[in-house]
Design a protein around this nucleic acid. Structure first.
Length: 578
RNA sequence: CGGGAUGUAGCGCAGCUUGGUAGCGCACCUCGCUUGGGACGAGGGGGUCGCACGUUCAAAUCGUGUCAUCCCGACCA
């Protein structure tokens, strides 16, 4: 490719609306252009990168025994009603009507469609196991698209779906996919962690996410991991053991009674006023889950993890209640108190979920829906007997102990580039997708699903590989392998050497760019660094002595070599790309 | 959806307070000069100032409404 012909425009400055590294770099280097919020044009350079990521994904999925197909982007409402998700999925599902006023949606994921295909074709146990995948644009009408390609509304995704006749078969395929994913991300030059996670709206029982750990602020997930064993989990799913804490308030509260606690709206104020550790206080929080209030109880030094709480309630939408909503709740129950003094008593007909930490507590302090008063020396059985559900709804914190080996847990930010779910019969059952076994009996398929964000993976690679000058692509997914820069295109020898190297590399199958623009060297170097070619060969004044300069983008390392050596070196490197 | 901000040329911005022929840098085109880290000079093309309505002799500027975009929170590949 001649640089003079390349359809690309690099910018002198970062676009003002870009926040994270990958968005800034990709926009400035001419890879992407925004069309509308969360929707991007993939310009020629970007498309080359995406095709490379796709190629790696295809090769590894095929190697793992999966088969590629392509499903429609537009899907009928009826299918989504069968699975029950037309109601459940919410506004993230982009709905539209055709000319006959039939309701449709843009595919945010394809469980319904693949299940409808399977039930038509997969009639016998003899046809399984099977794993089908596609690479396609998805559309999710995100509440707040941001971070460029990391959270677009339209994005490219590889989604795979497996069908098995048994849990054992699913387990096997799940592991098979985990291995394929590891190879895929390794080949893309991305170090990933496979972490346990919540299975969210897609549903199912077990799931893992593949996280790229970066030092940029683009990672939207907190990942807890253990250095001593291989435990790691998304914060929405992580569990931990806690250090011993004072949970029995016997020494502070010999008897159970209501006392005055003026101006103690917060846990901090309360623990200071009573001069007790916050581990002796029972914290009552009000959430709104699917529009209904839910009270969460937890030891006051700990934080509620909302996804865990939502799962415990069995809801699909959760948010913390506003002060007004809390007061309204108390008023409805016949109390008149400020929000800071809410407590579980008198709330018997509200869903109450208590964290496991609560079970340990004895002679503790709790709000009683009365301003400036608390009950001290309280105990569960005696004073709050109506709590039925004790489960883990606690947010893990750095320094908590690993649930598997007991060593302290660490935390880091991660970008989720892939995930794998065990779906079981979540879709096959409601959609009546069944096969016949050896005895002619029908069973629903045991399903799994496996996603990789193709465009997000490319963006994550930028987050993981860049410096102040631009992108440093891993060679396996770089748009081109090498750029040749003749410093002065009017210098005949420089151009001749550059052209010779260019032709040799081209005929060896190397993806090479010749920067034949009539620009000053500085401009070409800046662009080369920004675009992120992994290697650069410069034909400058030293060609008169028979040398060119060979530069590695990743390390900045420079070597003076003959043109032939440079060519041979590049060919060798390209030959070894996995 | 709640909170905050911004819409002026492809990109980055000024002008608005105090209404009076729409500007600057980069990018783009032409010529000259220059050629190892985003040179220089001269000339040139490109904008219904997000949109609508209103006030006014006159609106980028004042008012009302509306749309869009971005940032902070809850969702996810």
């Amino acid at each position: 490719m001649k640089m003079s012909k390349m359809f690309v425009q690099t910018l002198r400055e970062f676009p003002s609306d870009a926040e994270v590294v990958s968005h800034k770099m990709l926009a400035r280097a001419g890879y992407i252009r925004k069309l509308t919020s969360g929707v991007y044009n993939y310009m020629p350079l970007m498309w080359r990168v995406l095709k490379k990521v796709e190629k790696i994904v295809r090769e590894e999925m095929d190697r793992a025994g999966a088969q590629e197909l392509l499903m429609p982007f537009v899907q009928p409402k009826e299918l989504w009603e069968e699975s029950g998700r037309w109601e459940v999925y919410g506004r993230e599902l982009m709905r539209l009507r055709d000319r006959h006023d039939r309701e449709m949606c843009l595919g945010p994921t394809h469980e319904e469609v693949i299940t409808s295909i399977a039930r038509d074709v997969l009639k016998s146990y003899k046809q399984m196991p099977v794993n089908l995948y596609q690479i396609q644009s998805k559309f999710r009408d995100e509440v707040r698209p941001r971070y460029g390609l990391l959270r677009g509304r339209e994005f490219i995704m590889k989604d795979a779906y497996s069908f098995d006749t048994s849990e054992e078969g699913l387990d096997k395929e799940y592991k098979n996919m985990a291995q394929a994913y590891k190879r895929i991300f390794d080949r893309c030059g991305l170090a990933t962690k496979m972490v346990q996670s919540d299975s969210g709206a897609i549903g199912g029982s077990v799931s893992h996410e593949f996280m790229v750990i970066t030092d940029t602020d683009a990672g939207e997930n907190d990942v807890f991991y253990c250095n001593s064993c291989d435990y790691s989990a998304n914060s929405n799913h992580a569990i931990s053991n806690l250090a011993p804490a004072i949970v029995d308030g016997k020494e502070y509260f010999k008897e159970t009674k209501v006392i005055d606690t003026p101006q103690t709206h917060s846990i901090e104020e309360l623990s200071k006023f009573l001069n007790i550790p916050s581990t002796l206080i029972l914290k009552s929080l009000v959430y709104i889950v699917d529009k209904k209030p839910v009270i969460a109880l937890i030891r006051a030094d700990k934080t509620v993890e909302e996804t865990k709480l939502m799962n415990a309630v069995g809801g699909i939408d959760i948010r913390i209640a506003s002060s007004a909503e809390i007061e309204e709740l108390m008023t409805n129950k016949g109390f008149k108190a400020e929000p800071g003094f809410i407590g579980p008593n008198g709330m018997e007909d509200i869903t109450i979920i208590a964290d496991k930490t609560v079970k340990e507590m004895k002679n503790f302090v709790v709000g009683i829906n009365e301003t400036d008063k608390h009950l001290v020396g309280a105990n569960l059985e005696k004073d709050i007997p109506h709590i039925e559900t004790f489960t883990d709804i606690r947010l893990v914190e750095q320094g908590d102990f690993c649930p598997e080996c007991g060593k302290p847990l660490q935390v880091t930010k991660g970008i989720e580039v892939g995930n794998i779910f065990k779906l079981g019969t979540k879709y096959s059952k409601p959609m009546n997708a069944v096969y016949l076994d050896e005895n002619g009996k029908t069973h629903p398929y045991i399903m799994g699903c496996y996603g990789i964000g193709i465009s997000r993976t490319a963006a994550a690679a930028v987050e993981a590989h860049y410096d102040e000058h631009g992108i440093k692509w891993p060679i396996s997914i770089a748009p081109y392998h090498v750029v040749i820069v003749p410093v002065n295109i009017k210098d005949e020898l420089q151009m001749q050497i550059a052209n010779e190297m260019y032709e040799k590399l081209l005929s060896a199958g190397v993806e090479v760019v010749l920067d034949d623009r009539d620009e000053r060297a500085g401009v070409k170097f800046k662009d080369a660094d920004l675009i992120g070619f992994p290697y650069r060969i410069t034909a400058g004044k030293t060609v008169n002595d028979g040398f060119v300069e060979y530069k590695i983008r990743e390390t900045g390392e420079i070597e003076k070599v003959t043109p032939q050596e440079a060519v041979d070196h590049i060919i060798e490197i390209v030959k070894n790309i996995k």
